[in-house]
C-alpha cells in the first residue's frame, strides 16, 4: 500500500513574548490509501496544529519545520503557496470543527460547493452544479437541488457539516483531514456524521486523518491510532493493538477514563488523569507526561526514545513496559 501522506519529524514553533512555544514536536506518521488514522489527545496537545501544518494553513507567526512532508510522493514542505493552493481542496481537503461558522454566510450553498470544483477543474457551471447535487445526495441531504439555493443560516449544524463534507469531496481528494468534525454537533448527529465519513472514505478510497478526543469514535473507525500528548506522539499502533494493550501510561489513563462495555465493572469509578498539561514554552526535555505519571522515575527527566512493542508497528515513548508499570502499581497515587 503506497502512502498518500507521509509526515516525518514535523514541528511547529510559535514565537511568543514569553519565549518560543513548541506546540508540536517530532511528529511522524503516514497514511495509506483507504486508511483511517485517528489522532487522539486532549485539548491543546497539538492535534489541530498538526493538521493545519499539513495543509500549510498555520497562523502567519507559526514556524513549520519537518524532515519531510509528502503528499502522494510530492514534497509539500517546500512547495510554495501557489502549488499548495493547487493541492488544497484538490488533492487534500479539510473539514473543520465549527460547521456553524465555517461556511461563508453571504453565499449560497451551491455557490460555495461549485466554487471548490471550478477552482481546480476545467468544467462548466452546469457540470459543477450536477456534481454538487450528486454529492449532497451522497452525504444524505434530501432535496439537494433546492438546497443549492439556500444560505448557510437556513441550515442546521448537522446539515452544514454535511455540506462541508460534500465540499471537500468536490474534487475527489486523496486525503481528507477532519478536525474534530463532530465536536460542535448534537450527540445524536455525531454518530451519523462519523459513520458517513467512514462510509465515504471506503467508497472513494481516500486516506482519512481524523482528529478527535473521543476514544469511542476511534474504536469504531480507526485503522491506526496516533496518541499525542503535549505536542509529541506518545504511542502509535493499529487500533486493535492500542486498545488491546495500551503501552504508554497516558494511553492507559485515557482508556481508563471511558467506560468499555463488558470490561468496566458496573458501579466502578472511571479513571481520571491528575494534574495539568505542562507549559510548552522554552526548552523542553524528558518525558512530558512525567509530572502526571504514576510510574515516573528520575530517568524520565532525560530524553525518552520510542520503543517497539511485540508488534513492530506498535511503538510508544516510555521507559517502562506495561508489565513493569503494573509492578510499580503500588506507587500509583490515589486519584
Amino acid at each position: 500500500m503506497s502512502d498518500i501522506l507521509e509526515v516525518a519529524n514535523l514541528a511547529v514553533d510559535i514565537p511568543l513574548a514569553a519565549g518560543m512555544l513548541h506546540p508540536v514536536q517530532g511528529v511522524s506518521f503516514s497514511i495509506g490509501r483507504g486508511e483511517t488514522l485517528c489522532l487522539v489527545g486532549e485539548s491543546g496537545c497539538g492535534k489541530s496544529l498538526t493538521a493545519l501544518a499539513i495543509m500549510d494553513l498555520l497562523p502567519r507567526t507559526a514556524i513549520r519545520t519537518a524532515e519531510s512532508l509528502t503528499l502522494n510522493g510530492e514534497d509539500i514542505l517546500n512547495a510554495g503557496e501557489r502549488r499548495m493552493s493547487d493541492l488544497r481542496g484538490n488533492a487534500m481537503g479539510m473539514i473543520f470543527q465549527e460547521p456553524m461558522t465555517s461556511l461563508n454566510p453571504s453565499y449560497t450553498i451551491g455557490n460555495q460547493l461549485e466554487e471548490a470544483l471550478l477552482r481546480h477543474r476545467r468544467v462548466s457551471h452546469r457540470e459543477a452544479r450536477d456534481r454538487a447535487v450528486m454529492l449532497l445526495e451522497k452525504v444524505g441531504i434530501t432535496a439537494a437541488a433546492s438546497r443549492l439555493r439556500q444560505y448557510p443560516h437556513q441550515l442546521s449544524g448537522g446539515l452544514r457539516q454535511r455540506v462541508m463534507i460534500a465540499m471537500t469531496l468536490m474534487c475527489g481528494p486523496d486525503l481528507i483531514i477532519a478536525d474534530e468534525p463532530t465536536t460542535a454537533l448534537d450527540v445524536t448527529i455525531q454518530a451519523q456524521i462519523l459513520l458517513l465519513l467512514a462510509e465515504l472514505q471506503k467508497e472513494f478510497h481516500m486516506g482519512l486523518l481524523l482528529i478527535t478526543h473521543d476514544l469511542g469514535v476511534v474504536a469504531r473507525v480507526a485503522d491506526r491510532v496516533v496518541v499525542m500528548y503535549a505536542g509529541q506522539i506518545v504511542e502509535t499502533g493499529t487500533a486493535t493493538q492500542v486498545f488491546a494493550v495500551p503501552r504508554h501510561p497516558y494511553t492507559q489513563g485515557l482508556l481508563e477514563c471511558i467506560p468499555i462495555p463488558g470490561k468496566t465493572r458496573r458501579g466502578a469509578n472511571l479513571g481520571a488523569i491528575p494534574g495539568m498539561v505542562p507549559s510548552l514554552i522554552g526548552e523542553l526535555r524528558g518525558c512530558r507526561f512525567r509530572e502526571r505519571c504514576a510510574y515516573a522515575m528520575p530517568a524520565c527527566a532525560a530524553d525518552v526514545a520510542f520503543r517497539a512493542a511485540e508488534a513492530r508497528d506498535h511503538v510508544y515513548r516510555c521507559l517502562l513496559t506495561p508489565a513493569e508499570c503494573a509492578g510499580n502499581a503500588r506507587r500509583k497515587v490515589p486519584a
Binding site: 488544497r88 461558522t101 462541508m164 465540499m167 471537500t168
Partner: peptide, 10 residues
C-alpha cells in the same frame, strides 16, 4: 472560520 475554509479549498 469561513476564510480558513476558503483557503482550505485552495
Amino acid at each position: 472560520d469561513y476564510i480558513r475554509t476558503a483557503r482550505a479549498k485552495g
